[in-house]
Design a protein around this nucleic acid. Structure first.
Lengths: 118, 118
DNA sequence: TCTGGTTATGTCCAATCAGACATAACGAAT
DNA sequence: ATTCGTTATGTCTGATTGGACATAACCAGA
């Protein structure tokens, strides 16, 4: 994946939408796999959950991020809409911004941390 | 508060610590009020919860972020340690970085969102 | 017409989390 | 000794969340 596994950025919008690594990776998986279920499998996520997240994202925008169709030879599939690609790109850009420009602060934040048993 | 109420940044560290606006505001409240309970009250948070968050933060660092004492004329109190102040400052810096440098991306992300009934 | 992989949904249970309450310990000042 | 505001914990319950299953609908192609 493109982002630092040691850090995860989650954005809470006042629309009620929470958008973090999980949804971003899911969108990216859909884009690359062409299907919600394949993207879910790749992430070790049940189809039920993947679909729920897609539904949630679609519901929070005035137009869907994911465009899906069912039936047909290959069962159906899903693709990102232009908006979906833009949302993904913007999130990735923020991730990169944080990781690169915020490196010093992140390093300091991590410096004194330890793994906790409980 | 210093940060955009419309956006909240939450960091997931692989230490297991999750650090977002809530804990940052709590630390800031403790610094300004000199007490965990006063900080909690100010945020409309029960003392139980505020104390739990402090305990969690302290446990995730090799040295505490909050230094507390009990008893005495004023009942006791709490202050941030140097590490506590540094953690708060670093988080605020990341917030600012995100808000300022990421303004364009954030604006785009918000642009198409709508409030959702359920 | 049958198949197969996918989308689309419902339901249920366990686990985790948040809030409410309750209580004890503490110690400087009076 | 009593008081008072705070720190420090325990417990309980309701709400939210996540995971596991189960099932129906869909439709190009064989």
């Amino acid at each position: 994946m493109t982002s630092d596994p040691r850090l995860s950025l989650r954005l809470h919008f006042d629309s009620g939408l929470t958008f973090g690594r999980g949804k971003a990776d899911l969108l990216q998986g859909i884009e690359e796999e062409g299907s919600i279920s394949a993207a879910g499998r790749r992430m070790g996520m049940s189809y039920r959950r993947a679909w729920s997240l897609v539904e949630e994202m679609n519901a929070h925008f005035t137009s869907p991020l994911v465009d899906s169709s069912r039936g047909g030879a290959r069962g159906g599939g899903a693709q990102l809409t232009d908006l979906g690609r833009q949302v993904l790109a913007d999130y990735r850009a923020l991730e990169t911004l944080l990781r690169e420009q915020g490196a010093k602060h992140l390093a300091r934040l991590r410096a004194g941390q330890r793994y906790v048993s409980t």
